[in-house]
């Protein structure tokens, strides 16, 4: 009986050990993600497609007029586009779950010039894996997502992440909040 008990324990321990070992061998993370498609009409009704910007650095920014921080970062993005647009930097917005008139008002108010694809249903945002706003992605010249920013962007981020990408040196780490 004693031996029986000991063997039970050994068996159980071995079984669990094997299970644990077998399980933990997996779990490798996959590499940088290829940017999902992004196309549609912008706030002025003109067609926009990220595919046409292939080979350039594209900053994709999800925003809505009802999101306070989005409002604040608009000028930063506009300034980045102004400064580096000639070197192949484009900003493309996703106007998510918004009323078009309110969005147009915000664009007029902040004076931004970059286009924003209208995403009334929010499915474009889901395609990009956006869970809150604002969120910003940087798509490099190879079409992969080189950086991902949660929350509003600032000039430091532009300088440290986007500028090197535009001018050739690559930053491949995903940024966490």
């Amino acid at each position: 009986m004693r031996r029986g008990k000991a063997s039970v324990r050994t068996m159980a321990a071995t079984a669990i050990g094997v299970l644990v070992l077998a399980g933990c061998q997996h779990g490798a993370d996959d590499g940088p993600r290829v940017a999902p498609p992004l196309s549609g009409l912008d706030l002025q009704g003109n067609p926009q497609d990220i595919a046409e910007l292939a080979g350039e650095v594209v900053v994709v920014n999800a925003w809505a007029s009802w999101c306070g921080p989005c409002r604040d970062e608009m000028p930063v993005l506009e300034a980045a586009q102004d400064a580096h647009g000639d070197d192949g930097l484009h900003v493309l917005g996703i106007n998510t779950r918004d009323r078009t008139d309110a969005a147009q008002d915000l664009v007029a108010e902040t004076g931004v010039s970059f286009p924003s694809v209208v995403d009334t249903e929010g499915t474009l945002a889901v395609e990009w894996g956006i869970s809150g706003m604002p969120q910003t992605f940087v798509v490099d010249r190879d079409g992969t997502i080189a950086a991902h920013r949660f929350g509003a962007v600032d000039q430091d981020w532009i300088d440290s992440v986007i500028v090197p990408l535009v001018h050739g040196t690559s930053v491949s780490e995903e940024e966490e909040p």
Binding site: M11, A12, I16, L19, V20, A22, G23, C24, H26
Partner: peptide
């Protein structure tokens, strides 16, 4: 896969242990 596997293995291991006991 990964640690998620642990969550599936744990109930199976528990049942296995109970059967042995």
């Amino acid at each position: 896969t990964g640690y998620g596997w642990l969550l599936w293995a744990a109930p199976v291991a528990l049942v296995g242990a109970a059967v042995v006991v």
